[in-house]
Computed example of a mutant assay.
Amino acid sequence: MFDRAQWFLAGMSIALALQLSPPVAAAPLGKPAQTAQTTSIDAANKVFQEGLKLYQQGTVEAKKGAIAKYEEALKLYREAGDRSEEAATLNYIGLVYSELGEKPKALEYYNQSLPLSRATGALSIEAVTLNNIGLVYSELGEKPKALEYYNQSLPLSRAAGDRSQEALTLNNIGLVYSELGEKQKALEYYSQSLPLSRAVGDRRREALTLNNIGLVYSELGEKQKALEYYSQSLPLSRAVGDRRREALTLNNIGLVYSELGEKQKALEYY
């Protein structure tokens, strides 16, 4: 069994990444006894970490290499009978396929992960899996289906006391409502997500949500309100070194000034 999973924000909406903690085997006095199961789990953890390093390189080829490593780890976790790690690894494979644009393949792996996390009572992993399935459907343009999965994920995050995952899913629901043109509903969900991100000290996600709120206000024609939120988002992106988000927010501020007729100011931000 893995000790704990830590889930990270990735992309404009949310995808997941999982960092495994090596299992700590209880042992009697003296040298810990090695069994076939612990040997298999140790080998799986080692291969998984090799896959994680490849994934973090970010290139298409490296991600394909990561899938091969994760598949190898998956086989070892299955041999060891570690269904919790198996569920987590299936989720990781699904994530990589999703990022490579292979959405049906991603769903295939997420749907294998789901019954395993349910069987082991791993609420956080189940919540993340449901969230990831929702994200795939959202990216496929199936917004009602996405909401269906997000709304299954949300109470599980709350039941697990996982405020970070709860904030993530609330943000994703807000994004779907915004894309559906239901701006007030989007603001409701963003406004629920924001204090949770602040409470867990996730400044990257806080910056994302503030930017999303600013975008909604801009689309509602409330330009000064939009600037207010963009201006809160900007220093947070800078503080965490998220230059991509910083660039996006600067661009959004420039767009607001352009729409307000302040072209010179717009150019400064662009």
Rank of each mutant, 00 (worst) to 15 (best):
S40M: 10
E219H: 01
A159G: 04
S197I: 11
K69E: 13
A10T: 11
S193E: 13
K265Y: 07
L187Q: 12
N251H: 15
V200Q: 06
E259C: 08
Q34K: 12
V96E: 01
E148I: 01
L76S: 06
Y55S: 01
T169F: 14
L260I: 11
A5P: 09
S13H: 10
S98G: 08
E206R: 06
R244F: 13
K64M: 05
S117E: 10
Y150C: 08
F2G: 02
E139M: 10
P155T: 02
Q264P: 10
F8H: 06
E86K: 13
Y70T: 10
N211R: 11
T129D: 15
E188N: 09
K46I: 03
L74W: 13
R198V: 11
I125L: 13
G11F: 11
T38R: 03
S231G: 10
A43V: 03
A199E: 15
E182C: 09
A266G: 02
E139T: 00
E188P: 13
Q49S: 08
V136S: 02
Q184P: 14
A199L: 12
S231M: 05
A160G: 12
E259K: 14
L90I: 09
L16E: 05
R83E: 15
S13I: 09
Q19F: 10
L196Y: 07
K63N: 08
A87L: 10
A159R: 00
S84D: 15
L147V: 00
L18D: 11
E182A: 09
S84L: 15
Q34P: 03
Q34F: 08
K64E: 11
E99L: 15
E85A: 12
K53S: 09
I67C: 00
N251R: 15
L180T: 01
L54M: 07
K31R: 07
Q184L: 15
E246D: 01
G214N: 09
S40I: 04
A73W: 03
S164W: 03
K103I: 08
E148N: 03
D202E: 13
K63L: 08
R4T: 12
L220Q: 03
L255M: 12
N111S: 14
L18P: 06
Y137F: 06
I213Q: 08
A36C: 01
A87Y: 06
N151I: 10
N111T: 03
Y97R: 00
N252R: 13
I133N: 02
G51M: 03
S153D: 14
A186H: 02
G11C: 06
L208K: 04
S191N: 15
L208N: 03
N151L: 14
V24Y: 00
L52I: 06
E268S: 02
L234A: 01
A226H: 04
Q57P: 02
E50G: 05
A10C: 08
Q165H: 05
A10I: 12
Y149G: 00
L140T: 03
Y229G: 02
P104E: 03
S231E: 05
N251K: 14
